[in-house]
């Protein structure tokens, strides 16, 4: 098991290299340069060249990439933002908790609602307890996040004044963003749980359990749930990682200073180190979460555990 985890962690190295090279190349080969954006329209070519030189942007692409990677590997230094001249590492550390908290709360909400309701709809298939939640879920899944976010803002902070509309200072600030991001996710989770559960309760071993005289509740909770959860765990893990990098609309709407806004602003201002830093951090987190999911698998499914340890045990 430990060997497997180590192998997977080592496997992250080529992934990070690949992602960093791709993003770096895209940023470098798209038209424009940071200095002309920072200095604006009125700047002279001389001033632009001067600033680009200061930022190190006048060097050839491969050389810049090499320096960037070397600094990270040798000094764990992600460089300075072209615009603010502040170290990227500090900014990442300030923004990560916000993105993390938002994604975590949203996925938690999604699990708390999506999984139990998904199980209910599967067990009560074709009854009102199936159709009603399904319709509600379809509505939430179809709503664009930004629109739902605006509705929530309008209702709860503008009209009712219960929750603040922007900022990230207290946990109360996270309630609306959590709802805006988490409810559509809960809908997806519910649909997924439903289909996974439906497939599981049609398996032969469920019939075996019934043939032993097991009551329905035991059949569902003891025999079906653990099997149905296996694909759900994957979705929870991947979606959690995705929500951290996917929350642009929500972050912008509620003025949450998270990683997504950092990437968006970075792209707009050609701030290569900002975009690179946030992207690499998200990539690493994503890989770690997927690894975590795979480890959790082993505790649910003994077949996978046996595969990891490479033995029959």
């Amino acid at each position: 098991m430990l060997k497997y985890v180590l192998k997977r962690v080592l496997f992250m190295i080529p992934i990070l290299f690949g992602v960093s090279f791709l993003v770096f190349a895209i940023l470098s080969f798209t038209p424009g340069d940071p200095a002309s954006i920072i200095l604006g329209n009125g700047a002279t070519q001389e001033a632009i060249d001067q600033l680009n030189h200061e930022l190190g942007y006048d060097l050839p692409f491969l050389q810049r990439y090499f320096i960037y990677v070397k600094d990270i590997v040798t000094k764990f230094d992600f460089g300075f933002s072209y615009r603010t001249r502040l170290p990227i590492t500090n900014e990442l550390m300030a923004r990560l908790p916000i993105s993390f908290r938002l994604a975590f709360l949203s996925i938690l909400l999604a699990c708390l609602f999506g999984i139990p309701i998904g199980i209910l709809t599967a067990v009560k298939q074709y009854t009102i307890l199936d159709t009603a939640p399904t319709i509600v879920a379809l509505i939430f899944a179809a709503l664009p996040t930004f629109w739902l976010g605006m509705l929530l803002l309008y209702a709860f902070s503008l009209k009712l004044g219960i929750f603040p509309s922007y900022g990230a200072t207290t946990w109360v600030h996270f309630i609306l963003p959590m709802l805006g991001l988490g409810l559509p996710e809960a809908a997806t989770m519910m649909r997924f749980t439903r289909s996974s559960m439906l497939e599981t309760i049609r398996q032969d071993y469920i019939r075996t359990a019934r043939s032993k005289g097991a009551p329905e509740r035991r059949v569902i909770w003891k025999h079906a749930l653990k099997n149905a959860l296996i694909p759900i765990v994957t979705i929870v893990g991947i979606d959690f990682a995705a929500l951290m990098g996917d929350a642009c609309g929500t972050e912008v709407l509620y003025s949450l200073p998270g990683l997504c806004t950092m990437i968006i602003n970075g792209i707009r201002q050609k701030d290569v180190p900002s975009v690179m830093g946030a992207t690499l951090l998200l990539t690493a987190l994503c890989s770690l979460v997927v690894l975590l999911v795979d480890i959790i698998y082993a505790f649910i499914d003994p077949r996978i555990k046996a595969k990891y340890s490479g033995s029959r045990g």
Binding site: D204, Y205, T208, A209, S211, N227, D301, R303
Partner: peptide
């Protein structure tokens, strides 16, 4: 049951 490969619960 007929099919021993599918009649047993894989996680118990």
């Amino acid at each position: 049951f007929q099919d021993p490969m599918t009649s047993l619960n894989p996680v118990l």
